[in-house]
Nucleic acid binder design. Sequence first.
DNA 1: CTGGGGAAGGGGCCC
DNA 2: TGGGCCCCTTCCCCA
Length: 249
Amino acid sequence: MPRSFLVKKYFSNKKPYYRENQLETFVPESFPLAELPTQNNASALTCHPISPFFTSSDALPAPLSPINPVSLAPSPLGPLNLTSSPSSSSGEEEEDGGRTSDPPSPEVIQSIYHCLHCSKSYGSLSTASTSSEVSPRPAFHCKHCSKEYTSLGALKMHIRSHTLPCVCPTCGKAFSRPWLLRGHIRTHTGERPFACQHCNRAFADRSNLRAHLQTHSEVKKYQCGSCSRTFSRMSLLHKHSSSGCCPSS
DNA sequence: CTGGGGAAGGGGCCC
DNA sequence: TGGGCCCCTTCCCCA
């Protein structure tokens, strides 16, 4: 199983953080590159509109297992309350060593059943097994994880996250999209095309530059709902809140 | 402990 | 329709 990139964030917020010694996991055996959805290989796509994908015999058997509903604070933002215990769900695999740190979204609270293949969750077994029947729109289902999309293009885009067709020629690390690979290649070349106008720093990633620019701002983008303190990153706000700024909320 | 940098993933929009 | 890009987010690591 290619670690947790198959898992929705509200089940395991730990995203795949590939270390240099984990290169063998970049191109998982279960999703070989040969399954890339191309015009010559459409079998990687399973598009069967208005068919209950959980009962499809040739697709995924998708066993559903009841899990214990978790009781968590409903909202991670606003008046932040991040005092949840993310690793407390007993049925969850600890592929990442239990290092998840963020609370699941409110939908987790009402999601009692989840697909063992993709961890997509549902409020009831009947909903889970017949979800496509509920949807009035045609659905394109991923063969690998049972996620469904309303357009083929969206499905193909999603499948790239399974097949990881973009492989770094330097280290062999695989990515779902070319621009992700380009960003990764910059870590090899040291290229930093995004320069800060306020200091002499430069970054390989635009988002990282944007986060850096926040450090130059007196009023940061992310504000604590209790003490009005502002932070340059949401993660810092999360840390701030979880460290006890808002004990009463 | 906190703030910041680096790296990466995914959804959505535009061409 | 598909690729590229933008934006947001998350996580790890380090000073």
